[in-house]
């Protein structure tokens, strides 16, 4: 069966799978950004307890594999009475994993802001919170956006693993179709193309737009 005929027959399932993939991506991205900010700031904190918590979180999530984290959240947490529905467990695991990598980007971004900016903010008597929020973070954000673009692609790819706990995303649908039709080249080829289109024509252009937009706000052109 040619790719065209194949798509004509199976597009609704691939489309619904892609929809779940996009939903997982967006939820995990929101969670990942929030965790990154939180852990990145904690790792820079004066408080040793907060710093220790952040280091532990980051090392655990970066030191183990996303598959392991996903299984642990989905299969082991219920043993502690914390049963999480598979769709939620999916983006939770992916988001928490990406959050650990993002935390390092946030930390690096904040450290990349010149010391003079802290001093100037102090000289107009801003509180530590105001300095961070009004002066440092906006500049740190611009500096760290390019590596966030790569991280977002990693995040999109990471969502394919939620199929392992039977979330009906694009990867899952592709496997299902494959096992009932054995049209492997067509179905996996089509899925590869869809992921590629999502990454290359949606995620990357959006991140580039965001970079340009933020750079304009900084008056850099």
């Amino acid at each position: 069966m040619g790719l065209y005929d194949f798509l004509a027959q199976y597009w609704p399932r691939l489309l619904s799978g892609a929809g779940i993939t996009v939903a997982q991506f967006l939820l995990a991205a929101a969670l990942g950004v929030a965790i990154s900010l939180c852990m990145g700031l904690m790792k820079l904190s004066q408080n040793a307890l907060l710093r220790g918590a952040a280091v532990t979180y980051i090392e655990i999530f970066r030191g183990t594999s996303l598959v392991v984290q996903l299984y642990w959240i989905f299969f082991v947490l219920p043993l502690f009475g914390l049963t999480i529905e598979k769709f939620t467990a999916g983006y939770l695991a992916v988001g928490m994993n990406i959050g650990a990598y993002g935390a390092e980007l946030v930390r690096g971004g904040i450290l990349s802001v010149p010391k003079g900016q802290w001093e100037a903010a102090l000289a107009i008597n801003m509180s530590p919170a105001q300095r961070m929020r009004r002066i440092i973070l906006p500049q740190a954000l611009v500096n760290m956006l390019p590596p966030w673009g790569n991280l977002m692609i990693e995040l999109l790819k990471g969502t394919a693993l939620v199929s392992l706990i039977s979330v009906a995303d694009l990867m899952f649908e592709a496997r299902q179709i494959n096992s009932s039709t054995f049209l492997s080249a067509q179905v996996f080829g089509a899925a590869l193309l869809i992921y590629y289109v999502l990454a290359r024509f949606l995620v990357t252009p959006f991140m580039r737009w965001l970079e340009r937009h933020m750079a304009r706000k900084l008056g850099r052109t």
Partner: peptide
């Protein structure tokens, strides 16, 4: 600190 203002060698204007 409210009584004191400062200008720096490298200006340190907020670029954003």
């Amino acid at each position: 600190r409210a009584d004191i203002g400062m200008c720096f060698q490298h200006f340190n204007l907020f670029p954003h």
